[in-house]
């Protein structure tokens, strides 16, 4: 059920209709004597946004690494649109439509913003150009209408048009986060894993990006699914269709945001089971001043 890129510059999406975009089944990861993940399962349905939350050290980033293929689990399976990709490399998962961003941005400092998007697009849609272009003196000028449309559209969507030609090395962190999202989206993913995409952004930037996430999922013809790990629990709960909560490497809750919000185990993990999070005037979740509480999430 693998989907393929065509020479015309589009992704053939008709081949698979599995309702589950991405699934992790009973994933266990050990680092030496430490169990980072213990039998964690996760299901991301097409067109859904799944929030992944949990206190520091809960195993969120480890799970993202396993899902994206950067880390092999000691046990368990990863399924991408029904295909078992547990033993498939990160690169080949990317060519099958799995994209991600990183908590510590992993950009290519020698490239401009536009080049990031162009490269990601070509790696997915016309991968042979990575080999052939070096022998083609016209390589510099060869772009397809599909590429221009896709890249320009994303630059506009993410408000990056004015910095398109700037080398990313010269850009502030907030913009760099947007470039990472842009690069991931340019590869026309079926599933996008976002590791703390809002950190480093101001409130306005965060709100914009959240609306972009909702928009790209809603506009996707191919049922794009998102998995988001984020510090800002309020934002995750507001954005997600489903929420998975991890604590000490185990899944302690899963369900709709409302269900998770009222889950006793979650309240215990985050708040020491004392009182619910307070909303501030800005809409952010404030940490209650409770001894022993663990208000901060993310950064696992």
């Amino acid at each position: 059920m693998m989907t393929t890129a065509t020479d015309a510059g589009t992704i053939d999406a008709t081949a698979d209709q599995d309702p589950v975009a991405l699934a992790a089944d009973d994933i266990t990861v050990h680092f030496g004597g430490l169990t980072a993940l213990s039998g964690v399962s996760l299901e991301v349905r097409r067109g859904n946004i799944v929030g992944l939350v949990g206190p520091n050290g809960a195993g969120k980033s480890t799970l993202l690494a396993v899902l994206s293929g950067l880390l092999s689990p000691d046990a368990g399976k990863v399924l991408l649109r029904g295909d078992d990709v547990t033993d498939v490399s990160a690169r080949h998962r990317a060519t099958r439509g799995l994209a991600r961003t990183f908590q510590q941005p992993e950009l290519f400092m020698g490239l401009t913003v536009r080049e990031h998007l162009v490269l990601a697009y070509r790696a997915r849609v016309v991968p042979h150009r990575m080999w052939r272009d070096m022998l083609d003196p016209r390589a510099l000028f060869r772009t397809s209408p599909g590429e221009v449309e896709k890249v320009d559209g994303l630059l506009e969507l993410l408000h990056l048009t004015h910095v398109a030609k700037a080398p990313v090395a010269a850009l502030p962190l907030g913009v760099i986060r947007l470039v990472e999202v842009g690069r991931a989206l340019a590869s026309q993913p079926r599933v996008l894993l976002l590791d703390e995409p809002l950190s480093g952004l101001d409130l306005h930037g965060s709100e914009n990006l959240i609306s972009v996430f909702r928009e790209i999922v809603d506009r996707s013809d191919d049922g794009l699914a998102l998995v988001i790990v984020e510090h800002d629990v309020a934002a995750v709960l507001a954005l997600s269709d489903m929420v998975v909560v991890l604590d000490f490497g185990e899944r302690i809750a899963v369900g709709t945001p409302d269900k998770v919000r009222s889950d006793a185990a979650v309240r215990a993990a985050y708040l020491g089971d004392v009182e619910p999070p307070q909303r501030t005037a800005t809409g952010q979740t404030a940490a209650p001043a409770v001894p022993g509480s663990r208000p901060e999430v993310g950064g696992a």
Partner: peptide, 25 residues
């Protein structure tokens, strides 16, 4: 020519961030 071609971009990507390159295909 290689520097500004897709090959050069990909090589640049591989040099600056292996994780970023691999997860971009």
């Amino acid at each position: 020519n290689l520097r500004r071609s897709t090959t050069g971009l990909a090589l640049n990507a591989a040099r600056w961030s292996q994780a970023g390159a691999r997860t971009s295909g």
